[in-house]
């Protein structure tokens, strides 16, 4: 953690230190997020990449403090603009959500009320936090829709009258309704086609240009590589590598990052793909030492016994014994 600290400088919007979120099941404790530390600078676009079950969504939900039992944040700090979100009262946290941190979820249909017009839902969100009359709020709602590339008259539509991509735009409009400084997008385009995905990404990039910080959570490595300034690779609850997107893709340090890049088909890199051996671990009984060692082509004796430290290499952080 010392290294992470050394990288720290001012204008940090978000500082996460040693965060652990566990799920308590009959079978045992599942460490979905396991002592994770990360930073997010102002106006930075960060991509969190990992497979399903690696803890990336749990991390996002932890930041929002939306973890439901049997899940629980067991330790750590989430410093957002200097205040520890984990120490806030529920009432104070509710004010942070939406107003300071906005979130966009994977499935917009489940987060939109099917029986209420789009406009009314945005108005409600605005009026919950701001003291404006209905007319003013509705005008604002139309502006918001326009800012995400939808015609303003869509305020009169019901969710089912919109396509998946349009709904996701509405979700972004809702998330930025109160002008939060941080926007978390959890697999916002997984269910959408590439062209729609591209348009949604353009909106996120625009949000960034307007001064917001963005966290994009995705299983699509190339998408994150293309859009984000910095990438965080998660595996089995750990951040195994993080650093500048371009450098990370050009010269991956962690064997998992490397394996992932080599196993993803890429439209422009006409090359064969390599099969990554094994499969993601059972997080209730993870392998000892480095959780990646059973799949790692470069595993050494120590990897099987001891957890690797987070090491700084060329301005990047990697959790691997290879660089010790």
């Amino acid at each position: 953690m010392m290294v992470a600290e050394s990288l720290a400088s001012n204008n940090k919007v978000l500082k996460i230190r040693n965060l652990s979120t566990h799920y308590f099941s009959r079978r045992g404790v599942l460490k979905a997020v396991d002592r994770v530390s990360m930073d997010l600078r102002k106006q930075e676009f960060i991509g969190i990449v990992g497979e399903s079950g690696c803890g990336k969504s749990t991390l996002a939900f932890s930041i929002m403090r939306l973890i439901q039992p049997p899940g629980k944040i067991v330790e750590g700090e989430i410093l957002f603009n200097g205040k520890d979100l984990l120490k806030l009262k529920d009432e104070e946290m509710r004010r942070v959500r939406g107003k300071e941190i906005g979130m966009v979820f994977q499935d917009p249909m489940t987060s939109l009320d099917p029986l209420e017009k789009i406009g009314d839902q945005i108005v409600e969100t605005i009026q919950m936090h701001e003291d404006v009359d209905k007319k003013e709020a509705l005008e604002k709602a139309m502006k918001l829709l326009e800012s995400v590339g939808l015609p303003g008259d869509r305020v009169n539509y019901y969710p089912h009258q919109l396509s998946g991509g349009q709904r996701q735009r509405v979700m972004i409009a809702l998330a930025i309704a109160l002008n939060p400084t941080l926007l978390i997008a959890d697999e916002p385009t997984t269910a959408l086609d590439v062209i729609v995905q591209e348009k949604i990404m353009e909106i996120l990039e625009k949000m960034k240009r307007e001064g917001r910080s963005i966290i994009l959570i995705t299983h699509d490595f190339s998408l994150a590589a293309e859009k984000s300034d910095r990438i965080l690779i998660m595996y089995a609850g750990w951040i195994v590598e993080m650093g500048d997107s371009m450098k990370l893709v050009a010269e991956p340090l962690h064997p998992y990052t490397k394996g992932l890049i080599e196993s993803v088909p890429d439209i422009w890199l006409a090359r064969k793909i390599k099969t990554m051996p094994g499969f993601p671990p059972d997080l209730i009984n993870p392998p000892p030492g480095c959780k990646f060692h059973p799949r790692c082509p470069k595993a050494k004796e120590i990897c099987k016994r001891e957890e690797p430290p987070l090491i700084e290499v060329n301005g990047r952080l990697v959790k691997c014994w290879l660089y010790e």
């Binding site: 590439v194 591209e198 293309e226 893709v249 993803v264």
Partner: peptide, 18 residues
């Protein structure tokens, strides 16, 4: 247009609008 929207590790300078 599809090709220009596909994410890639090696982004091409191809912008075809749709």
């Amino acid at each position: 247009a599809l090709l220009s929207a596909v994410p890639s590790f090696e982004k091409k300078d191809l912008r075809i609008d749709i």
